[in-house]
Design a protein around this nucleic acid. Structure first.
Lengths: 192, 192, 192, 192
DNA sequence: AATGAATGAGTTTTCATTCAT
DNA sequence: TATGAATGAAAACTCATTCAT
């Protein structure tokens, strides 16, 4: 009634929480409305459909995160520094907004088919940086797709480990270790 | 049809395919029955519920895979050899049974809470081997949870890359690269 | 339709009718929806399940009836008067709301295990009054459970007879006869 | 395979037990087969349908019981004696075969529409005896339907009380009390 | 007579979405 | 904008019965 953007924020916040807790398919519009303290019909004043809500949540933050990664990396000169910046940003993000981070991870499986291979995409960002590094001779020539997925694996799987209690928080304490591991995995000899 | 085990096999085979294609939630019991060429009610002669089917499929193959990993690794002496064996087995599995592999990956997100931390679990297998290697001084001391998830990340994320066309098949061609990357990431200096 | 309580009333009314006509198991949610002039899904806005509907219908009216019996009886001094009041109330109820009465009779068989032995229970009401009467010396000492069930038998079985055409309606014409029979059966000598 | 009548007996025995425990509608043919230790299909070698099984069980024993009542009563001269014999037979039956007794009670609700008003029917037996007694002047003139249902109520409701723990077993200990109650309820002055 | 796998129509229930207020 | 009652299509599941062996 009063502040429409406040309602919207509430929906987004609770939706993230519920999607992470129960999965997207496991969260009903009823759950969403209840958690956000609004009527079910009101959801449709803010989003055309449940899918639209999921996609909005995903695409907005996914792109934002990708942009932030690009921005951080672009401030660094060397590949090692760029990578360290990216890893640090990942860890910081996870520690600061674990719910959002987890949502982006899980939504990928549903949203990936719709993800375009452009620069609004963290995977693409990493891959581009690697390609540049290879071009500059900072790391050995190698398939960039494989290299990029290896780097992401070194970041995402430990993150999943944190979620399931296999790895101790906070994530940031491992930033250096992981950055170094990435460099080594890619065959760089300029380790930290 | 009168051979129950044949019907069961058909159900399992088609279920894996459909679950991977459309997701578990996106596959209806009607889809399953139709694909398996049986009546919907017949499903329930073989599984108590759709969930039970998912869980049976997951737990059976997940455990089998974990056992195979353990078996392969146990034939090797050094950590480097064990790791190489595990990586090779992962790649071989992915190439030989991509549908099953993908199912195990996606089902983890639904099944993980129910997965016990015992030896029927690939994550646990890797973690155990790493712990042993640290004990023997083959790799530097480090948190085993983090180390194990890094190794898995170096395996699983490239596998996802293959699924989405970011990495060229077959997976096996990268086995050595990945194994070496794992060793380096863990700080070993006995590289291949 | 926009008045929820109106819809709810319609559901309850038609449910009672159908349950009595076809039995609870013989009435489908489809029947219920059709009779109430609503969509099948609408039922579930008002009741969590078909069972919940049955239980709500039963427990509400069962308790209400028990309270009414208690109220009527409490206005009388002597046991004979209390009993007459109870019998009259039973008969009046049967004649006024035969459908509801029949529903309570048939639902007992399904609901009895869940019925608590408290004062919301007609059987308990009768038993309490009998116990009091024995305490006051109005009727001979005897097991109250047996005595109460005999009184109820003298009421319920004729009611069943009415339902099946063995006894002529209205029920109320037998109120005095039955009340007297109860008193005699319990060994009272203060007959009407 | 071997003894068909043995299988049949097993089915009947277990069916009675299950029907009483879970109700007819609450007992599946699967339950029946499992309890009887046979295959589901085998049921249909012995009975055309589940309904046929229920009806066979009911009609056989209902008629048998009615005949027994008639036989007992016919050995007595006076109405008081006949009634005492009937009550005693009811109680004896309940104590000897509580499961069968309970089945007949519950099946009435389902089977009653099909019950014919002939002499194979306990209600009819009682009603006939009462009519005779009225004719002979042993009890006052009164509607026989009402009188018969009152007598049955004095028998059946205490039986239900026994089932639900409201009345202490065995039933037979109350035979005299109930018989006397019946006589008094019917206005006889020749009490025991 | 017996088996037990298979059937399929029917049942309860769910839930994203619409609509009257 | 907001509400919340209502929708209806589709989902998971049940079960008496049939049928090939």
């Amino acid at each position: 009634m009063r502040d429409a953007s406040e309602t919207r924020r509430k929906i987004q916040h609770e939706a993230l929480r519920l999607f992470v807790d129960r999965g997207v398919g496991g969260t009903t519009t009823r759950d969403l409305a209840q958690a956000a303290g609004i009527a079910e019909g009101t959801l449709y004043r803010h989003y055309e459909s449940k899918d639209a809500l999921v996609w909005d949540l995903f695409s907005t933050h996914y792109a934002t995160f990708a942009h932030r990664l690009t921005a951080r990396a672009s401030k660094c000169e060397t590949f090692a520094a760029k990578l360290a910046a990216i890893v640090a940003e990942f860890c910081r993000f996870f520690d600061a907004e674990p719910v959002l981070f987890r949502f982006l991870m899980l939504a990928q499986h549903q949203a990936l088919p719709r993800i375009t291979n452009d620069s609004d995409n963290p995977v693409e960002v990493v891959q581009t940086i690697i390609a540049t590094a290879i071009g500059r001779g900072e790391i050995p020539a190698q398939p960039t797709g494989l290299a990029a997925t290896m780097v992401l694996g070194l970041l995402l799987q430990p993150a999943i480990g944190l979620v399931y209690g296999r790895v101790e928080p906070p994530f940031s304490q491992y930033a250096e270790t992981i950055a170094t591991a990435c460099l080594k995995a890619l065959g760089s000899d300029h380790h930290a």
